[in-house]
Simulated assay, not measured.
Amino acid sequence: MPSRGIRRKALHLLCRLRNTLRVTSNETERVPVGYIGDVRLDHWPEPERAILHSREGNKVYLRGADPCDEVSERVPVYEGDEVIVMEHIAYISAHTEPEGAAGYMLSQRVVPLREEPGKVFARTLRHGEEDDGRRAHCRPGDEFVLEEMQISVDHVDEWEGKGVDGYVPLTPVLFTWMSFATHHSAEKHRYLLAAARRLDQAQSLFDRIDVLRQSDPEGAPAVRRAVFELVGTTELATVSLGRVVDMCMQARTAIGAAAPVPADIRTRCDGVRAIRNAYEHIEDRALGNVQGSPHPDALTIFNHQRVVADGVIEYGTHQLDLSTDVPSIVNAARQYLKDVAKEV
């Protein structure tokens, strides 16, 4: 058994060894010279919380925090570090012209897929896909590769509807969509845009009718002006809507549409056509005629009282309710024209 003296010497050596190791560790441990909490590039509107992306030697790559990132500590920086702020890409935009803002069509969210040396791969967010806010982040000199791009008429419709209350005009939606979908014939392109313009105009006029019916003008002259405008606007709105109904019903023959015409259009088309024809040929009806011959229904189109009081157009045995029938037809026609535009 070792003597007490030997044990004391051994303990003394161990203590010296521990102290030596502690001093050596302190001498080699790197002490941060600072911490970075926010980063910003010149063209960013605001600073963003800093996230450490990676360290490569003395190069420290930082990126702005995405909405999906968890709360993190500030990034330590050591003596000799070179801090590099990465660029982020959240959207791509489509244009009809190579330069300038005149040809701007729409923007799409892009999300990262993967990284390879010198390349960052991304794709567009799919319509209806949850968006957690993540972005693609690129080092200086990285190539941004859009590996997958998807766009649909529903995506365009959603984009056009941002900030719009109520009805979203269909013509810009179809124009933008068919600018991407080059498989449409020139005839189909013209046909769908013409129908969409009539639909948008009809809806705009029906909106004006709602305003007039809810107005409360003071004095007989003001009341008469409002009534005459209401009747005239109803005539023009119905003529425009009637043309849309015809174009939907004839789309299969005219442009080879495969989508079935919605029941809300099919079941109301006869009444809409009859009323539309009466309004469109008002000069004939004013003489009591239909196609140049006397007809017992001709003068019923001048029963404006129900239009003003009840919001119902009457012509012969046909009726069109502005508060129920018209919205059903407009919504059905809008969806139908979109469905036809989707077809290959």
Rank of each mutant, 00 (worst) to 15 (best):
L320F: 12
T300R: 04
D207P: 01
F144R: 02
S328I: 04
F302L: 13
G128S: 09
E343C: 02
C68N: 15
R243N: 03
G161Q: 02
S107D: 11
L287R: 14
T233E: 09
G288L: 07
V77P: 02
L170A: 03
A65L: 03
R213K: 15
V153D: 08
R273D: 07
P117V: 13
A263R: 15
V227R: 11
G118I: 07
R114A: 12
A258Q: 13
I275P: 01
K162V: 13
R134C: 08
T317C: 00
V239E: 10
L125T: 07
H53N: 14
E187N: 14
S72F: 00
S93Y: 12
T24G: 05
D270Y: 10
S204D: 12
V272W: 10
H183N: 08
L13S: 11
T20V: 09
S323Y: 14
G161F: 06
Y167A: 05
A195S: 14
D38G: 00
E56Q: 15
T96G: 13
S179V: 05
R198T: 00
E283M: 03
P296Y: 10
R266N: 02
A274Q: 10
E56D: 15
H318G: 00
C15V: 12
F228T: 12
S25P: 00
Q335N: 12
A341W: 02
V33W: 01
I209L: 14
Y315L: 03
G34L: 06
R123H: 04
Y35E: 11
T233C: 08
D270S: 12
G166K: 08
N289R: 11
E115F: 06
S328M: 15
Y91L: 14
G161T: 08
Q335C: 02
K59I: 00
V153K: 06
R55I: 09
Y91T: 06
P172C: 09
G166E: 01
H43D: 15
D321G: 01
N303C: 04
F206H: 04
L193Q: 12
H189A: 04
Q108H: 11
E235P: 00
A196T: 03
D154A: 09
A263N: 10
H318K: 14
G232E: 04
T267F: 12
I89H: 06
T20W: 08
D154N: 09
V231Q: 04
L52H: 06
Y167N: 06
A136Q: 04
G316T: 07
D200P: 00
E160W: 01
L205M: 08
